Simulated scan of single mutants.
Amino acid sequence: MADAGAPAVSQHNKPVKNSWWHNNQQSMTPWLFLAPGILFFLFYVIFPIYQSFSLSFYSWDGLGEAEYVGAYNYEELYWDDAFYTSLRNNLIWLVMYLFAIPAGLFIALFLNQTVTGIRLYKSLFFFPFVISQVVVGLVFTWFYDPTFGLLNYILGGVGIPPINVLGDENFVTYGIIVAGLWPQTAYCMILYLTGLNAVDPEQIEAGRLDGAKGLRMLWHIIIPQLRPATFIAFVVTIIGALRSFDLISVMTNGGPYGESRVLSFYMFEVALSEYGFRMGYGASIAVVLFLIMLVFIAYFLWSMYQEEKAR
C-alpha cells in the first residue's frame, strides 16, 4: 500500500534531461564576460603582432604590391649604423629610466607622512603625470634653450658657459631622458602611494617592537610588501623607455645628425617619413623592439611567478 504522505508520481512523467548550458552554466559564465576583452586583445594586439612579423619579410611602400624578400630586411639591419645608434640610445634610456622607480618610492614615502601642506605637495608632484608628453617636451625645450633657457641662466650664475643640450650629440639623449623622467617618476610615485595604503600596520608595529626603524624598517618590512607595485613600476618603466617616441619627436626630431634616435623613432622614419615608405624595413625594426620588450617582461613575469610559487 502506498504511503499517503508521499507525492504522487504520474506514469507519464519522465525525467527531463538537462541542457548542455544548464549543466555548464557556472563554468561558462566567466568566459562570456571575458569574451569581449579577449576578442579585442586578439584583434588589436595579437593580429598586429602577426602582421608585423609577416610584413618584415616583404618590401612594400604601403601602396603597391608587396614583394617577398625573405630575411633581407634583417640583413640590412645588421649593417645599418643608424640602427645601432638607435639601439644604443634605447639601452641608455632603459638604464637611466630605472631611476624613476627609487625616486618615485622616496617621494611616495615623503608624501605618505602627515605634515603641514601635504595636499599641496601631492598636487605638485602629481602634476607631471596629468600633462601631455608633448607639453613636457616643449617645456624642457625652452628650459634647455642656449639663449634664454633657465638652465643656462643657472649655469651662468655659477660661472659655467652656456650649453646647447639639444644641439650637442654628447648631451642630447641624456637631456631628453631627464625630461622623460619627470612624468615617469610621478607615475611610479602614484603606484607606490597606492601600495603604501595596503601596507599591514601590524607588521610595522611588530618591527618597531623588534627595534627596526629607519632604513631597516624600510628594507625588511615596507619594501617586501610593495612588491606588486614595484613589479608594475618596472614593467611600465621598461616599456616606456623602449617605446619613447613623442619626446624625441617634439624636442629634436631625431637630431642632431640622428644621434637622439631610438628604435621606435627610427621605425617611424623609415616606414612613414623621408626614407621612402619602407614598410617592411620598419616592420623588421618593430619586431626587434618587440622581442627586446618581450625578454624583459617575460623575465619579470617569471620572477613574480617563482615568488608566488615559493609562498
Rank of each mutant, 00 (worst) to 15 (best):
Gly255Phe: 01
Thr252Ala: 10
Tyr257Ser: 10
Ala103Cys: 14
Thr114Glu: 13
Leu263Ala: 02
Met96Val: 13
Gly5Leu: 12
Met189Gly: 09
Phe290Leu: 12
Leu294Gly: 00
Val250His: 00
Arg278His: 08
Tyr174Cys: 04
Arg208Ala: 06
Trp31Met: 08
Trp21Gly: 11
Pro36Asp: 14
Tyr50Val: 15
Phe234Ile: 00
Trp20Met: 11
Met28Arg: 05
Gly167His: 00
Thr114Ala: 13
Leu42Gln: 10
Phe231Cys: 04
Phe43Ser: 14
Gly240Arg: 00
Ser264Ala: 11
Pro128Tyr: 08
Ile221Gln: 03
Tyr257Glu: 01
His12Tyr: 07
Val295Ser: 00
Ile190Gln: 14
Ala198Cys: 08
Ser86Thr: 04
Val69Pro: 12
Ala108Ile: 05
Gly175Ala: 04
Arg278Gln: 15
Phe143Ala: 09
Gly240Cys: 05
Ala71Arg: 02
Ile176Lys: 12
Leu191Glu: 11
Phe268His: 09
Phe171Pro: 00
Val288His: 01
Phe47Leu: 14
Thr230Trp: 00
Tyr174Arg: 09
Ile223His: 00
Arg88Asp: 08
Gln133Phe: 15
Leu191Asn: 12
Gly207Phe: 04
Ala283Lys: 06
Glu307Ser: 12
Val262Met: 15
Tyr305Arg: 15
Asn18Met: 08
Glu76Leu: 15
Val158Arg: 10
Leu63Trp: 05
Phe143Arg: 04
Met28Tyr: 07
Arg208Trp: 06
Ala241Thr: 00
Leu63Met: 13
Ser244His: 15
Leu193Thr: 09
Asp81Phe: 02
Ser264Trp: 08
Val199Trp: 03
Ala4Cys: 02
Pro146Ser: 07
Val16Asn: 01
Arg227Gly: 05
Gly70His: 08
Gly282Ile: 03
Leu272Gln: 05
Glu269Leu: 11
Gln25Asp: 10
Asn89Tyr: 08
Val158Pro: 04
Gln26Tyr: 11
Ala8Thr: 11
Val139Trp: 02
Gly258Ser: 13
Val16Thr: 11
Leu215Thr: 06
Phe300Trp: 01
Gly149Tyr: 06
Phe127His: 10
Ala229Asn: 09
Ser123His: 01
Asp246Thr: 14
Phe53Gln: 12
Phe129Cys: 02
Tyr266Asn: 13
Ile46Glu: 11
Leu226Tyr: 03
Ile107Gln: 08
Asn24Met: 09
Phe268Trp: 05
Gln306Ala: 08
Leu105Ile: 15
Ala82Asp: 02
Leu111Glu: 08
Gly280Tyr: 09
Phe140Trp: 13
Ser264Arg: 01
Gly62Lys: 02
Phe143Trp: 11
Leu196Asp: 12
Phe99Ile: 04
Val235Asp: 00
Tyr97Pro: 06
Glu65Met: 07
Ala103Trp: 08
Phe143Gly: 06
Ala100Asp: 07
Val134Met: 14
Tyr305Ser: 04
Pro183Ile: 05
Phe83Trp: 13
Gly37Trp: 07
Leu124Cys: 12
Leu124His: 07
Tyr275Leu: 11
Ile163Tyr: 01
Phe106Arg: 14
Gly149Asn: 10
Ala6Leu: 07
Tyr58Trp: 14
Leu151Asp: 09
Leu111Asn: 06
Leu124Pro: 03
Trp93His: 12
Gln225Trp: 03
Ile190Cys: 08
Ile131Ala: 01
